[in-house]
Design a protein around this nucleic acid. Structure first.
Lengths: 178, 178
DNA sequence: GCATATTGTACGTTAAAACGCACGGAAGGT
DNA sequence: ACCTTCCGTGCGTTTTAACGTACAATATGC
């Protein structure tokens, strides 16, 4: 349930305390919290209030987050190489219902082109070209993008991309769903 | 004294709750915490335990740090932006109120590092490294990213970036505001 | 006008955080 | 052996977080 947060606080507190070479007694003096309480927290027997945890954090000269194990979902992807395929699509960020964002990196071989059906209304695509030259189709015509250029367009219509340079094309695609 | 932490939790809770258009009752159902308690916390009349605050945070689909207003006293010297040529920031997409997205490309000289203050709650940053090796600071530690890797983290806390490689660092930063 | 939800607050009780003190164990000194 | 000192834990009490319910507000409907 929510016991894991107590566990992380327990381990972090003990690690920080012993790391400074403090006994429960001296830690108590620094923090203004009884050593009995500190012991109970370290054993996971009690869940401190944030007021007390703040006193502990300031006593340790550390930010509050040092005791919370910081749940900031970081995900890391290694870039998938395109062997001898014509195209590779690498998902950098899966669709997130909170932000409405998903992000891909695409690699196109020379001359390759690809089309996509219309998405639902309000969907926006963001293109950033990191390598090569491309054109993207939107509305009723093609638009050119060189390396380092970027564009934003409505994707609630048929659209497409193609490599028009003499090298590998790499570009990012950030899609936002309303 | 240590009352200020209760104040920040109080204001953050009320802001997040009303921001979602939730009453104390529905917030209680989402979090599994009595609405009487939520009311007392919002009025600063009681200091929740971290276990309860964690239940609240998960009920709101927010990180714990969203309620703690982290961080004070963290050495954050804001570097002169484009004055010296140690860093360049290129705006690819201006902030769009419809998508809540803005996007930058950043270039750091060798060894350069830069910090940013906490953004408003719920702000998410997406990092994609296109060249070089970097580390980003988030929560209470640095996280490494090599070329081609990416990461997503909550930016409603003090955070930073630094070039830890032997070459120019290039990375994209997509910031999403809720 | 009178009902009927819906909101946030106040009250009384229960569970638990937090305190102070005392206890057993381990390390060091004489 | 001994005494001393420091460590962490257990116990009893006080404080308070947390709960459930009832209450006074403010709207919406008939």
């Amino acid at each position: 349930m929510s016991d894991f947060i107590n566990e992380t606080v327990a381990t972090q507190l003990k690690k920080n305390r012993t790391g400074k070479g403090w006994s429960l007694d001296v830690a108590s003096q620094h923090c203004g919290v009884s050593k009995a309480m500190l012991g109970q927290i370290e054993r996971g027997e009690s869940s401190p209030t944030i007021a007390k945890l703040w006193k502990i954090a300031t006593g340790f000269n550390l930010p509050l987050s040092a005791f919370l194990g910081v749940n900031n979902e970081q995900t890391s992807h290694i870039q998938g190489l395109l062997a001898d395929k014509k195209v590779s699509i690498n998902t950098l960020f899966e669709f997130d219902k909170h932000t409405g964002i998903e992000m891909f990196e695409l690699c196109f071989a020379i001359g390759h082109e690809q089309y996509s059906e219309a998405h639902q209304t309000g969907v926006l695509e963001h293109i950033v070209v990191t390598c090569g030259e491309m054109e993207y189709f939107c509305g009723d015509q093609w638009h050119r993008l060189n390396t380092g250029e970027s564009a934003k367009f409505n994707a609630d219509q048929a659209h497409g991309y193609r490599n028009v340079g003499n090298d590998l094309l790499r570009f990012f695609n950030i899609i936002h769903y309303p």
